[in-house]
Design a protein around this nucleic acid. Sequence first.
DNA 1: GGGTGTCGTAACAATTATTGTTGCGACTGC
DNA 2: GCAGTCGCAACAATAATTGTTACGACACCC
Lengths: 144, 144
Amino acid sequence: MSANSRLTIAAHALAWIGLYQRQGHEVATSEQIASSANTNPVVIRRLLGELRRAGLVESRRGVGAGWSLARELESMTLLDVYEAVEPGPLFAMHRTTPDQGCVVGHGIQPAMQCIYEGIEETVRHELARVTLANVLRDVLAAPR
Amino acid sequence: MSANSRLTIAAHALAWIGLYQRQGHEVATSEQIASSANTNPVVIRRLLGELRRAGLVESRRGVGAGWSLARELESMTLLDVYEAVEPGPLFAMHRTTPDQGCVVGHGIQPAMQCIYEGIEETVRHELARVTLANVLRDVLAAPR
DNA sequence: GGGTGTCGTAACAATTATTGTTGCGACTGC
DNA sequence: GCAGTCGCAACAATAATTGTTACGACACCC
Protein backbone atom coordinates (compact mmCIF):
# COMPACT_ATOMS: atom_id res chain seq x y z
CA MET A 1 0.00 0.00 0.00
CA SER A 2 1.22 3.43 -0.86
CA ALA A 3 1.36 4.88 2.60
CA ASN A 4 0.98 8.50 1.70
CA SER A 5 -2.24 10.37 1.77
CA ARG A 6 -0.70 13.75 1.08
CA LEU A 7 -2.59 14.35 -2.14
CA THR A 8 -5.87 13.34 -0.49
CA ILE A 9 -5.36 15.60 2.52
CA ALA A 10 -4.22 18.51 0.37
CA ALA A 11 -7.32 18.20 -1.82
CA HIS A 12 -9.43 17.98 1.32
CA ALA A 13 -7.92 21.19 2.68
CA LEU A 14 -8.37 23.09 -0.56
CA ALA A 15 -11.97 21.97 -0.94
CA TRP A 16 -12.63 22.98 2.65
CA ILE A 17 -11.16 26.46 2.22
CA GLY A 18 -12.98 26.88 -1.07
CA LEU A 19 -16.34 25.98 0.40
CA TYR A 20 -15.74 28.13 3.46
CA GLN A 21 -14.95 31.11 1.30
CA ARG A 22 -18.04 30.52 -0.80
CA GLN A 23 -19.97 30.80 2.42
CA GLY A 24 -18.61 34.31 2.84
CA HIS A 25 -15.67 33.80 5.18
CA GLU A 26 -12.33 35.44 4.56
CA VAL A 27 -9.88 32.90 5.91
CA ALA A 28 -9.85 29.39 7.32
CA THR A 29 -7.65 28.30 10.21
CA SER A 30 -5.48 25.21 10.21
CA GLU A 31 -7.38 24.07 13.27
CA GLN A 32 -10.73 24.10 11.48
CA ILE A 33 -9.34 22.15 8.56
CA ALA A 34 -7.54 19.72 10.84
CA SER A 35 -10.79 19.08 12.68
CA SER A 36 -12.54 18.23 9.42
CA ALA A 37 -9.72 16.00 8.25
CA ASN A 38 -9.38 14.47 11.72
CA THR A 39 -5.69 15.18 12.06
CA ASN A 40 -3.30 17.61 13.71
CA PRO A 41 -3.22 21.32 12.77
CA VAL A 42 0.53 21.16 12.22
CA VAL A 43 0.08 18.50 9.57
CA ILE A 44 -2.29 20.84 7.76
CA ARG A 45 0.07 23.79 8.11
CA ARG A 46 2.90 21.75 6.67
CA LEU A 47 0.87 20.73 3.65
CA LEU A 48 -0.58 24.19 3.11
CA GLY A 49 2.93 25.60 3.40
CA GLU A 50 3.91 23.53 0.38
CA LEU A 51 0.81 24.66 -1.46
CA ARG A 52 1.70 28.25 -0.66
CA ARG A 53 5.15 27.76 -2.11
CA ALA A 54 3.40 26.57 -5.27
CA GLY A 55 1.22 29.67 -5.30
CA LEU A 56 -2.08 27.92 -4.64
CA VAL A 57 -2.91 29.44 -1.25
CA GLU A 58 -1.94 32.41 0.88
CA SER A 59 -1.69 32.81 4.63
CA ARG A 60 -2.10 35.71 7.00
CA ARG A 61 -0.70 35.98 10.48
CA GLY A 62 -1.79 37.70 13.63
CA VAL A 63 -5.26 37.74 15.14
CA GLY A 64 -7.94 36.66 12.69
CA ALA A 65 -5.22 34.98 10.66
CA GLY A 66 -5.62 31.90 8.50
CA TRP A 67 -5.51 30.55 4.97
CA SER A 68 -7.18 31.63 1.78
CA LEU A 69 -7.07 30.55 -1.84
CA ALA A 70 -4.60 32.36 -4.06
CA ARG A 71 -6.46 31.28 -7.21
CA GLU A 72 -9.92 30.16 -8.14
CA LEU A 73 -10.67 26.48 -7.58
CA GLU A 74 -11.59 26.30 -11.26
CA SER A 75 -8.02 27.11 -12.28
CA MET A 76 -6.39 24.60 -9.93
CA THR A 77 -5.89 21.01 -11.03
CA LEU A 78 -4.96 17.94 -9.05
CA LEU A 79 -1.70 17.95 -10.98
CA ASP A 80 -0.83 21.34 -9.47
CA VAL A 81 -1.49 19.88 -6.04
CA TYR A 82 0.33 16.65 -6.79
CA GLU A 83 3.45 18.43 -7.94
CA ALA A 84 3.35 20.65 -4.88
CA VAL A 85 3.11 17.88 -2.31
CA GLU A 86 4.57 14.72 -3.86
CA PRO A 87 8.33 14.84 -4.00
CA GLY A 88 9.30 11.57 -5.67
CA PRO A 89 8.37 9.24 -8.49
CA LEU A 90 5.49 6.79 -8.42
CA PHE A 91 7.68 3.71 -8.83
CA ALA A 92 11.05 3.32 -7.20
CA MET A 93 14.24 1.77 -8.52
CA HIS A 94 16.40 -0.68 -6.57
CA ARG A 95 17.43 0.87 -3.27
CA THR A 96 20.98 -0.36 -3.83
CA THR A 97 22.47 -0.20 -7.31
CA PRO A 98 22.40 -3.61 -9.00
CA ASP A 99 25.50 -5.49 -10.13
CA GLN A 100 26.84 -3.48 -13.06
CA GLY A 101 28.94 -6.43 -14.14
CA CYS A 102 25.77 -8.39 -14.92
CA VAL A 103 24.00 -7.66 -18.19
CA VAL A 104 20.61 -7.52 -16.53
CA GLY A 105 21.86 -5.57 -13.54
CA HIS A 106 23.37 -3.05 -15.89
CA GLY A 107 20.47 -2.61 -18.26
CA ILE A 108 17.47 -2.94 -15.99
CA GLN A 109 17.40 0.56 -14.58
CA PRO A 110 17.39 2.49 -17.86
CA ALA A 111 14.81 0.06 -19.23
CA MET A 112 12.44 0.45 -16.30
CA GLN A 113 13.10 4.16 -16.03
CA CYS A 114 11.86 4.64 -19.55
CA ILE A 115 8.69 2.67 -18.90
CA TYR A 116 8.00 4.39 -15.60
CA GLU A 117 8.43 7.84 -17.11
CA GLY A 118 5.81 7.08 -19.71
CA ILE A 119 3.37 5.96 -17.05
CA GLU A 120 4.02 8.97 -14.84
CA GLU A 121 3.35 11.18 -17.80
CA THR A 122 0.01 9.50 -18.30
CA VAL A 123 -0.87 9.90 -14.64
CA ARG A 124 0.03 13.57 -14.77
CA HIS A 125 -2.22 13.94 -17.75
CA GLU A 126 -5.11 12.37 -15.89
CA LEU A 127 -4.52 14.50 -12.81
CA ALA A 128 -4.44 17.62 -14.95
CA ARG A 129 -7.94 16.87 -16.19
CA VAL A 130 -9.50 17.26 -12.75
CA THR A 131 -9.88 20.71 -11.22
CA LEU A 132 -10.42 21.35 -7.55
CA ALA A 133 -13.79 22.81 -8.51
CA ASN A 134 -14.66 19.37 -9.91
CA VAL A 135 -13.56 17.81 -6.64
CA LEU A 136 -15.66 20.18 -4.53
CA ARG A 137 -18.67 19.57 -6.75
CA ASP A 138 -18.29 15.80 -6.33
CA VAL A 139 -17.81 16.22 -2.60
CA LEU A 140 -21.08 18.13 -2.31
CA ALA A 141 -22.82 15.58 -4.54
CA ALA A 142 -22.11 12.70 -2.15
CA PRO A 143 -25.27 11.13 -0.74
CA ARG A 144 -25.80 11.37 3.00
CA MET B 1 8.83 9.06 -2.66
CA SER B 2 7.12 5.77 -3.12
CA ALA B 3 9.41 3.59 -1.09
CA ASN B 4 8.67 0.33 -2.77
CA SER B 5 10.74 -1.17 -5.48
CA ARG B 6 8.88 -4.45 -5.59
CA LEU B 7 7.78 -4.13 -9.19
CA THR B 8 11.30 -3.19 -10.25
CA ILE B 9 12.92 -6.10 -8.42
CA ALA B 10 10.31 -8.56 -9.66
CA ALA B 11 10.88 -7.47 -13.26
CA HIS B 12 14.61 -7.76 -12.69
CA ALA B 13 14.25 -11.31 -11.42
CA LEU B 14 12.02 -12.40 -14.29
CA ALA B 15 14.32 -10.87 -16.89
CA TRP B 16 17.27 -12.58 -15.25
CA ILE B 17 15.62 -15.99 -15.24
CA GLY B 18 14.45 -15.50 -18.80
CA LEU B 19 17.89 -14.63 -20.07
CA TYR B 20 19.50 -17.46 -18.11
CA GLN B 21 17.09 -19.95 -19.62
CA ARG B 22 17.74 -18.61 -23.11
CA GLN B 23 21.37 -19.41 -22.44
CA GLY B 24 20.38 -23.02 -21.97
CA HIS B 25 20.13 -23.33 -18.20
CA GLU B 26 17.23 -25.11 -16.55
CA VAL B 27 16.79 -23.19 -13.31
CA ALA B 28 18.12 -20.09 -11.61
CA THR B 29 18.81 -19.89 -7.88
CA SER B 30 17.64 -17.10 -5.62
CA GLU B 31 21.26 -16.49 -4.75
CA GLN B 32 22.25 -15.81 -8.36
CA ILE B 33 19.38 -13.39 -8.81
CA ALA B 34 20.05 -11.71 -5.48
CA SER B 35 23.64 -11.20 -6.49
CA SER B 36 22.58 -9.48 -9.70
CA ALA B 37 20.00 -7.32 -7.92
CA ASN B 38 22.44 -6.64 -5.07
CA THR B 39 20.10 -7.78 -2.34
CA ASN B 40 19.42 -10.73 -0.06
CA PRO B 41 18.31 -14.12 -1.43
CA VAL B 42 15.38 -14.22 0.97
CA VAL B 43 14.02 -11.00 -0.50
CA ILE B 44 14.11 -12.64 -3.92
CA ARG B 45 12.47 -15.82 -2.66
CA ARG B 46 9.68 -13.81 -1.10
CA LEU B 47 8.98 -11.95 -4.32
CA LEU B 48 9.25 -15.04 -6.49
CA GLY B 49 6.93 -16.81 -4.09
CA GLU B 50 4.28 -14.23 -4.88
CA LEU B 51 4.95 -14.61 -8.59
CA ARG B 52 4.57 -18.35 -8.23
CA ARG B 53 1.21 -17.88 -6.57
CA ALA B 54 0.23 -15.86 -9.63
CA GLY B 55 1.40 -18.64 -11.93
CA LEU B 56 4.31 -16.77 -13.49
CA VAL B 57 7.17 -18.91 -12.20
CA GLU B 58 7.78 -22.36 -10.78
CA SER B 59 10.25 -23.62 -8.24
CA ARG B 60 11.96 -26.92 -7.63
CA ARG B 61 13.48 -28.07 -4.39
CA GLY B 62 16.35 -30.32 -3.50
CA VAL B 63 19.81 -30.36 -5.02
CA GLY B 64 19.96 -28.54 -8.34
CA ALA B 65 16.82 -26.71 -7.32
CA GLY B 66 15.83 -23.21 -8.35
CA TRP B 67 13.36 -21.14 -10.27
CA SER B 68 12.08 -21.31 -13.81
CA LEU B 69 9.48 -19.46 -15.85
CA ALA B 70 6.00 -20.97 -15.92
CA ARG B 71 5.11 -19.05 -19.10
CA GLU B 72 6.92 -17.41 -21.96
CA LEU B 73 8.19 -13.89 -21.30
CA GLU B 74 6.18 -12.81 -24.33
CA SER B 75 2.94 -13.72 -22.60
CA MET B 76 3.74 -11.95 -19.34
CA THR B 77 2.96 -8.28 -18.89
CA LEU B 78 4.06 -5.83 -16.24
CA LEU B 79 0.43 -5.73 -15.14
CA ASP B 80 0.59 -9.44 -14.28
CA VAL B 81 3.67 -8.73 -12.18
CA TYR B 82 2.19 -5.60 -10.65
CA GLU B 83 -0.94 -7.39 -9.53
CA ALA B 84 1.13 -10.21 -8.10
CA VAL B 85 3.42 -8.08 -5.97
CA GLU B 86 1.60 -4.81 -5.21
CA PRO B 87 -1.07 -5.25 -2.60
CA GLY B 88 -2.64 -1.82 -2.27
CA PRO B 89 -3.82 1.16 -4.25
CA LEU B 90 -1.56 3.79 -5.75
CA PHE B 91 -3.02 6.67 -3.72
CA ALA B 92 -4.13 6.36 -0.13
CA MET B 93 -7.08 7.87 1.67
CA HIS B 94 -6.92 9.59 5.05
CA ARG B 95 -5.38 7.29 7.62
CA THR B 96 -8.11 8.25 10.08
CA THR B 97 -11.66 8.73 8.85
CA PRO B 98 -12.49 12.41 8.44
CA ASP B 99 -15.26 14.17 10.38
CA GLN B 100 -18.48 12.75 8.98
CA GLY B 101 -20.40 15.65 10.46
CA CYS B 102 -18.61 18.03 8.09
CA VAL B 103 -19.83 18.21 4.51
CA VAL B 104 -16.33 18.04 3.12
CA GLY B 105 -15.22 15.37 5.54
CA HIS B 106 -18.19 13.28 4.53
CA GLY B 107 -17.96 13.66 0.77
CA ILE B 108 -14.23 13.77 0.18
CA GLN B 109 -13.52 10.06 0.26
CA PRO B 110 -16.07 8.92 -2.33
CA ALA B 111 -15.06 11.84 -4.54
CA MET B 112 -11.36 11.05 -4.43
CA GLN B 113 -11.99 7.31 -4.60
CA CYS B 114 -13.72 7.75 -7.91
CA ILE B 115 -10.91 9.84 -9.34
CA TYR B 116 -8.22 7.49 -8.08
CA GLU B 117 -9.93 4.45 -9.52
CA GLY B 118 -9.94 6.01 -12.95
CA ILE B 119 -6.24 6.76 -12.72
CA GLU B 120 -5.39 3.28 -11.49
CA GLU B 121 -7.29 1.85 -14.39
CA THR B 122 -5.21 3.93 -16.76
CA VAL B 123 -2.00 2.81 -15.10
CA ARG B 124 -3.06 -0.82 -15.37
CA HIS B 125 -3.73 -0.28 -19.03
CA GLU B 126 -0.25 1.11 -19.55
CA LEU B 127 1.36 -1.71 -17.60
CA ALA B 128 -0.54 -4.26 -19.66
CA ARG B 129 1.04 -2.90 -22.82
CA VAL B 130 4.55 -3.91 -21.79
CA THR B 131 5.58 -7.56 -21.84
CA LEU B 132 8.53 -8.95 -19.97
CA ALA B 133 10.01 -9.82 -23.35
CA ASN B 134 9.92 -6.10 -24.12
CA VAL B 135 11.68 -5.41 -20.86
CA LEU B 136 14.40 -7.97 -21.50
CA ARG B 137 14.92 -6.60 -25.01
CA ASP B 138 15.33 -3.08 -23.62
CA VAL B 139 17.66 -4.35 -20.93
CA LEU B 140 19.92 -5.94 -23.53
CA ALA B 141 19.76 -2.82 -25.68
CA ALA B 142 21.26 -0.62 -22.96
CA PRO B 143 24.61 0.88 -23.96
CA ARG B 144 27.62 -0.11 -21.94
C1' DG C 1 20.74 -44.19 4.12
C1' DG C 2 23.53 -40.11 4.66
C1' DG C 3 25.40 -35.81 2.65
C1' DT C 4 24.58 -31.67 0.14
C1' DG C 5 22.40 -27.74 -1.82
C1' DT C 6 18.35 -25.14 -2.27
C1' DC C 7 13.80 -23.67 -1.26
C1' DG C 8 10.09 -22.27 2.47
C1' DT C 9 9.14 -19.76 6.14
C1' DA C 10 9.28 -17.65 10.53
C1' DA C 11 11.23 -14.31 13.53
C1' DC C 12 13.37 -10.25 14.25
C1' DA C 13 16.36 -6.14 13.32
C1' DA C 14 17.27 -2.13 10.39
C1' DT C 15 15.87 1.38 7.50
C1' DT C 16 12.92 4.80 5.68
C1' DA C 17 8.88 7.75 5.04
C1' DT C 18 5.02 9.57 6.90
C1' DT C 19 2.30 11.26 10.46
C1' DG C 20 1.49 13.01 15.13
C1' DT C 21 2.82 16.00 19.02
C1' DT C 22 4.82 19.59 21.77
C1' DG C 23 6.93 23.85 22.32
C1' DC C 24 7.96 28.40 21.43
C1' DG C 25 8.96 32.49 18.77
C1' DA C 26 6.90 35.86 15.30
C1' DC C 27 3.42 38.51 13.79
C1' DT C 28 -0.82 41.37 13.84
C1' DG C 29 -5.04 43.45 15.31
C1' DC C 30 -7.33 45.17 19.29
C1' DG D 1 0.24 44.66 26.50
C1' DC D 2 -2.84 40.78 25.22
C1' DA D 3 -4.72 37.17 22.50
C1' DG D 4 -4.96 34.25 18.53
C1' DT D 5 -2.73 32.22 14.75
C1' DC D 6 1.00 30.98 11.77
C1' DG D 7 6.15 29.28 11.21
C1' DC D 8 9.15 26.14 12.31
C1' DA D 9 12.13 23.04 14.74
C1' DA D 10 12.65 18.92 17.35
C1' DC D 11 11.28 14.65 18.52
C1' DA D 12 8.12 10.60 19.18
C1' DA D 13 5.00 7.28 17.09
C1' DT D 14 3.51 4.51 13.40
C1' DA D 15 3.81 1.77 9.39
C1' DA D 16 5.83 -0.38 5.38
C1' DT D 17 9.60 -2.22 3.28
C1' DT D 18 13.84 -4.36 3.27
C1' DG D 19 17.69 -6.99 5.29
C1' DT D 20 19.34 -10.83 8.12
C1' DT D 21 19.59 -15.09 10.59
C1' DA D 22 18.07 -19.51 11.51
C1' DC D 23 16.32 -23.86 10.66
C1' DG D 24 13.31 -27.35 8.77
C1' DA D 25 11.78 -29.69 4.31
C1' DC D 26 12.87 -31.60 0.24
C1' DA D 27 15.20 -34.04 -3.56
C1' DC D 28 19.16 -35.58 -5.84
C1' DC D 29 23.51 -38.14 -5.65
C1' DC D 30 26.78 -41.19 -3.80
